[in-house]
Amino acid sequence: MKLNSAIAIALATQSNAQQMLRFACSQLSVERLDPLVDPGVPQTAHLHQIVGGNAFKPTMPTTTDLSKVASCTTCTKQEDFSNYWTAVMYFRARNGTYKRVPQMPNLHLEGQKGGMTIYYIPPYDGKSKTTAFKPGFRMITGNPAARTKSVRPRELTFRCFGKNWSGDQGAPGGGSDTDTFPKKPCLGGIRSNTYFPVCWDGKNLDSPNHSSHMAYPSGQPNGGGPCPATHPVRVPQLFYETIWDTREFNNKEDWPADGSQPFVFSTGDNTGYGHHGDYMFGWKGDSLQRAMDARCGGNLGNYCPQLTNQTYAAANACNVKQTVSESVDGWVKTMPGGVLAGDNDHHL
């Protein structure tokens, strides 16, 4: 099964294609901070782009209920103070310099400022129970150190958009995904797809590697099959779509002289196999559970009477200052932290 957008998956697997929660989360911060992998460290090895609640800081214990300490969120669902983050994409020019690739709004969410589109999807059979995450829950999917397909989950892919969000073969839900960075110019940008596992052990809010308390189901790669006995509790399918605005970098005269694709993650990964995502739950009270029980849908997943929408202006106004001030934009000789394309030691 190809890993298409959540909308395409829903269309193919259930009669009500809108049984999903889909909303925008604008940019909160871009900095070298990772309270999940490196708690307490004020400046970590590589750069992240973060969205969600403004409680984000170097130390965030599992005992912290983010909804009680955050005062604003960049997400358009007012009850969601979770934090979501990924590595940052850079363009490496022929002369060896780098420039950060900005994020742009997704289709029908044009009011957001950078950031990501977030999905929470109940089971595709249209009836099975979903258990919402608990306060203090966190997880990681993907391996930032991966440089080959053999050590990388299959749920992390890229989509090359043509003009007008057309994808390779049609509408945004059409076309095909790749395991690696696209090897040709993408006229409408590049979307990275980040699917998290949907099976929880039902006990641990976290684990030493931030992954083993979770598992992917068997069968369909992103949520359709049964959960293993070791991880019997079905949680929502969490899915990030990040639209990287690569349009200013489409001139192949600026690409490396050998014709290789020019994009690289802030970890030094120039393959795309190191694509990964981090998550800390922060929904207020039982709001996410209510939304999942109602199987919210309509208006491309944005309509959910159980939740409160805030304006894009309010979401865009929420931000946090960098813990350690550092320039992340403009043309630079190395990426933040001294990282270069092809480096394999800046993945923590």
Rank of each mutant, 00 (worst) to 15 (best):
A8E: 11
Q14R: 15
Q14T: 15
M20I: 12
R22D: 04
Q27H: 14
L28T: 12
R32K: 07
D38G: 05
P39N: 09
G53D: 02
N54A: 03
K57Y: 08
T59W: 14
T59F: 12
T62P: 04
T63S: 15
T64V: 15
A70P: 08
E79A: 01
F81D: 04
N83T: 03
P102N: 09
P102K: 08
P102T: 10
M104R: 15
P105V: 01
N106T: 11
L107I: 12
G111M: 07
K113P: 10
Y119C: 04
Y119D: 06
K129S: 12
T130M: 07
K134F: 10
P135S: 05
F137C: 05
M139F: 15
P144V: 03
R152F: 02
P153D: 04
E155H: 11
R159I: 14
K163P: 06
N164H: 12
S166R: 06
G167V: 05
G174R: 10
S176R: 13
P182Q: 01
K184Q: 10
P185V: 02
G189E: 02
V198C: 11
K203I: 14
H210I: 09
S212G: 09
P217C: 11
G219N: 04
G225V: 00
G225L: 06
T230S: 14
R234G: 06
Q237F: 10
L238V: 13
Y240E: 00
T242H: 09
I243Y: 14
R247I: 08
E253C: 03
D254F: 11
D254T: 15
S260W: 03
T267H: 05
G268K: 02
G272N: 00
G272K: 00
H275E: 07
H276R: 04
G277P: 05
K284V: 07
S287R: 11
L288G: 01
R295G: 06
N299H: 12
L300K: 07
G301N: 04
C304N: 04
C304S: 08
N309Q: 10
Q310W: 10
N316C: 09
E326K: 08
W331A: 10
W331Y: 10
V332R: 15
K333A: 11
L340T: 03
